[in-house]
Design a protein around this nucleic acid. Sequence first.
DNA 1: ACTTTTTCTAGTCTTCTTGACCATAATGGC
DNA 2: GCCATTATGGTCAAGAAGACTAGAAAAAGT
Lengths: 251, 251
Amino acid sequence: MNSAVASDLPRYPASVTVDLVIFTLREDDLHVLLIERGNEPYRGASALPGGYVRPRESLDGAALRELREETGLDGRALHLEQLGAYGDPGRDPRGRVITVAYLALGPDLPVPVAGTDAADAVWVPVRRALGPGFGLAFDHGAILADAVEKARERLEYTTVAVSFCREPFAISDLRRVYEVIWGIALDPSNFRRKVLKTAGFVEPTGERRAAEAGRPAALYRFGGARDLYPPLLRSGEVAGRTREAVPVGGA
Amino acid sequence: MNSAVASDLPRYPASVTVDLVIFTLREDDLHVLLIERGNEPYRGASALPGGYVRPRESLDGAALRELREETGLDGRALHLEQLGAYGDPGRDPRGRVITVAYLALGPDLPVPVAGTDAADAVWVPVRRALGPGFGLAFDHGAILADAVEKARERLEYTTVAVSFCREPFAISDLRRVYEVIWGIALDPSNFRRKVLKTAGFVEPTGERRAAEAGRPAALYRFGGARDLYPPLLRSGEVAGRTREAVPVGGA
DNA sequence: ACTTTTTCTAGTCTTCTTGACCATAATGGC
DNA sequence: GCCATTATGGTCAAGAAGACTAGAAAAAGT
């Protein structure tokens, strides 16, 4: 507040929205939920789901509501965190709109729920959404790119990777999360050692899963720890059978 | 955007402000720049400097402008990054105000510049600002607490600590930054080894500084690297001569 | 002048973590 | 039964970090 100014609100009125970057893993690929815009501007283009923050609503509350409306899912079942605010003056041709972006992570979600706003919501591989020729509306390309980087970083220092796994899960399921999002291959044995040694990351259920191929895997559930210490750093990781990385920096 | 709605802007008009958490080190203590509010609400209380985002201004631009107005400093000389958006419905009694908080880090700054908005800006030890009996206006206590945690985290994974040092600086100056912000003591020898081994953290100037006491220290400048790999993790650090930690979680 | 104090600098040693491997187990398919 | 495939368990060496010892270089005190 400028303490020398005595004016009252609102000044420079603007609209505030929340936009959701909802990630999930489908077919060993990172997907993001996008909707097709039915109105101008950017009619026909894809965009992140989102909407206006209502008068008596908190930002987090608006994000939870939109998440429920778009995916039909209870936000408490997913990982949801704020990504940041985006407010460049020209980002919305209709006027001044500041958006607060949220990052949501969840297991392979039941296809977008019909009967909601998300009737025309679709899962799109992030690789494709950020690729050339896929023009996301507004500055959603930049938001998505930031979200990918944020997700990659969160995997290093927290246990959010389990948010992508439906319980019970195998260590290899968890490993695949890291491999897909980081775009590199991890050594199964070393990854396993790290996960099991980290207190509170996972805990065994006792069950094992019939495999499509190979030895059956022991199953685990989330262990309750939020932070990962020491962190699980990407970096000097396997160079060998590198998976193609999800391109970043687009839009 | 809710694709099923055809309305035009603005909907649910709100005001958008930026608030700055400007940290610096003074007398071996983490200080934050606060202003005394001259108007209602919270007249007379301390608050983070900030102000309205203007119609044609980006959020980052508004933060830079406020920084210049409040400290008289060129924002490009400081580290400045977005902290996040705060928008609880009741946070400002005057109406709906969403604020985007920024974190600014700089070396012991020349006392708040007079002749600007910041005429009554003062440096306050964070410990005190977060302590009991020091009621910050609005939700600025929570924002400040988040900023402290963010700063602590940034020190682990990035080289921003140098933002607190005026060049040229000694390794021990850098160490003091970590010690003050983390609130723990670090082993001088091990810290030195870590800093010098990390490529791009610092580079020697060749000079050395006359000491008030003890052996003169070699001087360094920033090495250009932004990220710290491997990170410099707080955690199992020295328990012995622990400095009192800056309390967090207040307000 | 000499000692003490202080801080910077250098090095050792042990422990922990990681990455690179290798070997074996347990399953389905042929 | 043999092979492909995945899971699991272990070894080994390199690197990083914490604990510590000690020397170097200055100011301050006696």
